[in-house]
Design a binder for these strands. Structure first.
Lengths: 187, 187
DNA sequence: AAGCCAAGTTAATCGGATTAGCTTTTAGCT
DNA sequence: AGCTAAAAGCTAATCCGATTAACTTGGCTT
């Protein structure tokens, strides 16, 4: 009986990939075990259970999203940076709906929770975008929350097929970027 | 043994209330049965199962949200209407996080699906807000999607404790309304 | 070569959803 | 008032997925 050579990272990565394929709700321990070539109970040697698995997938997703947004923004400022960040974020959510869904409603247990660290990295990436605008110190937090709400809302609505009408979705997203840019520049 | 006098509407209403209390994920058939004073299998006389129950809760939630936003907007226009609609929507989501969560990622099966009708009513309520601004016909759809994304994003992030920092959340929301109003008026 | 630990395995257990089949209430009809 | 059939309940049984217990073995250390 050959060893599968698993470790927590491999299990989490496979779980995230599977969640993207079948949806977070469809991610079962049995399906994941089959995917990594092992019997179901063996997964418990690497992760604590379904809740722990979801948490780890969320951490992975937040780090990946932060990387994607962070590197998309490199070398840009102002509107270009805003557009690059927003597009990168939306692209990430649409390509990885399952793992992104794992991040929703997940609360860090404390400041040293890896989840908090990962979430902070994503926030930092968006904060960098705002530095390209003339925003009063007291407005930065509000603007950050707006950016996050817009990106999160748009991406999750689209991922869940929440937009039912005819107009082109990409066009709406670009419109939304332009709208936000105008507003931020007018401050 | 006395009849409980249930019907589908009563079961769905109780399910929605329970979802608000324990979270959508915590809503089990057993818990709901206990709540309405009946054994678990009896619920199946009124709803088709858990998926059907979730769908019906979603329809209820969308109608209630549309009612809330629609009546909040009555008699207002422009910025006042925008503020009233946004506040009503957010209040609804925060007071009824469970039933609102049921609406996420739920796709209507066709144009005559009650879910489509209910969703359209909510959209119509937001569309009414936009009529108070001078927006080109070609921009209305985009603006509507932005409004929906903003409200949905902000409310769900807050409901899921997605905002971790210090700044006051109500203040951020008012800031966001002002920002959007300025942008819409500048079109 | 002995021995230990991590990674696997099989066999149970447990809880929640759902189905089957039976009983009883109750609305509608005569 | 009495008949009857559908609706609304119930108990018992099944199924499936998560999790735990207890055993086995591969692979490295000493």
């Amino acid at each position: 009986m050959p060893r599968a050579g698993l470790d927590p990272a491999a299990v989490v990565a496979a779980g995230a990939a599977l969640a993207d394929e079948v949806g977070l709700a469809g991610l079962t321990m049995g399906l994941l075990a089959e995917r990594v070539g092992v019997r179901t109970p063996s997964l418990y040697k690497h992760v604590g259970g379904q809740e722990d698995l979801n948490r780890r997938i969320a951490v992975l997703a937040l780090h990946e999203a932060a990387d994607a947004v962070g590197s998309a923004v490199q070398g840009y400022a102002g509107r270009d940076a805003l557009a690059a960040a927003a597009r990168a974020f939306r692209a990430f959510v649409l390509e990885h709906p399952g793992r992104y869904a794992a991040t929703i409603g997940m609360e860090p247990s404390g400041p040293d929770d890896p989840l908090a660290t990962a979430g902070q990295r994503l926030l930092d990436a968006f904060t960098a975008v705002l530095r390209g605008y003339e925003i009063a110190e007291s407005d930065v937090d509000h603007a950050l929350r707006m950016l996050r709400s817009l990106c999160h809302g748009f991406a999750t609505l689209q991922a869940g097929n929440g937009f039912q009408w005819s107009a082109d979705i990409d066009e709406s997203f670009e419109w939304l970027i332009a709208f936000t840019d105008r507003g931020l520049r007018a401050m």
